[in-house]
């Protein structure tokens, strides 16, 4: 049965206000900007944003007033600096106050791994001696039952919805993803609802031709959205590079609330859907993100 949906329908049907959403699980690559922008257009509210780091997507959702809580290790603009909307929300409560649960990248991965394994917590030696323990109720110091060593018990984090960009998927949820995976494998197992955002929809036979590259069991996938260039300005290996200038432009535009509103209106609110955004970017800018050089992996023989 086909799980294909439009991005509009995936957001309207699978992301009610108030849910928790994990995005940016590949870190600076494979960020589902198309999904986040559709959440903003549909005026979602009181979302809990979850991710290891967020390279400007969470900043945009926070600035648009969609978020009430952030569960993350890092929120900002990786190449340009601080996240201005994140700062305004935490420092001044604008456009609304938000709550922050501070993780490290490793504790966030472990929180997802705990949920993925169906256990209430996982122990680790990281984060001991940090103030993350004071600003995240999901990090508690325990004593090892075997050698009394202090450990941090990282509470399971079970996102309601995951948006996972992939290079190619079939319509049943089988998908190939390559490049830096970050916390994507555990996010796919931990989340109640998994939505793949695919650059390309391919035949099922393409996916099963290389089962070692399949991201997650297809029965864990609830929906597949076909959204070419859906991760711009973040990179997708084999499809397009990172649009560094876009991050810089956003950084400058979002310095003031008024500037952010203008940016949001131009790039999100006044475009109907992703195709409008891509038209605004223009073919030249998009072509410049792709060198044209292919780097194919060696063939793999599954024969017997």
């Amino acid at each position: 049965m086909s799980k294909l949906m439009t991005m509009h329908d995936a957001i309207s049907q699978l992301v009610p206000s108030g849910v928790s959403v994990v995005m940016g699980t590949g870190l600076e690559g494979l960020i589902p900007f198309a999904a986040g922008h559709e959440m903003i257009r549909q005026h979602k509210r009181d979302l809990t944003l979850m991710g290891p780091i967020s390279d400007i997507l969470f900043d945009q959702l926070i600035g648009a007033g969609c978020a009430e809580r952030v569960v993350a290790a890092w929120v900002g603009n990786v190449s340009a600096g601080l996240g201005h909307c994140y700062r305004r929300a935490v420092e001044r409560g604008e456009p609304r106050p938000i709550e922050v649960y501070d993780h490290s990248n490793f504790t966030f991965s472990l929180a997802l791994q705990a949920a993925a394994q169906g256990v209430p917590y996982l122990p680790t030696r990281t984060a001991l001696g940090t103030d993350l323990l004071k600003t995240n109720p999901g990090l508690s110091v325990i004593s090892s039952p075997y050698d009394d060593a202090p450990l941090v018990a990282v509470e399971a984090v079970e996102p309601d919805v995951a948006f996972i960009p992939v290079q190619r998927a079939d319509d049943e949820g089988g998908a190939h993803c390559w490049g830096a995976l970050g916390v994507t494998p555990e996010a796919c197992l931990a989340s109640r609802t998994v939505v793949l955002v695919a650059e390309e929809i391919v035949d099922h036979e393409v996916i099963v031709s290389d089962p070692n590259r399949v991201l997650t069991p297809p029965f864990r996938v609830a929906a597949v959205v076909h959204e070419p260039l859906g991760s711009h300005p973040s990179p997708v290996q084999g499809h397009y590079g990172r649009d560094h200038a876009f991050y810089e432009e956003y950084h400058l535009a979002s310095r003031t609330p008024e500037g952010f509103e203008r940016w949001l209106d131009e790039w999100v609110m006044s475009v109907d859907e992703r195709s409008g955004y891509l038209e605004k970017l223009g073919p030249e800018r998009l072509a410049a993100l792709r060198s044209g050089t292919r780097r194919l992996a060696a063939e793999v023989d599954y024969g017997y």
Binding site: L27, L30, F106, T126, A180, P185, P235, G238
Partner: peptide, 26 residues
Amino acid sequence: YTMCDPPNIAGAAACTPMATVMSLLQ
């Protein structure tokens, strides 16, 4: 500019989940 830029991935010795490199660290 970032560790996930495509030139940092092409030709890598390995591309693993974060759990692998954090396990090595721990």
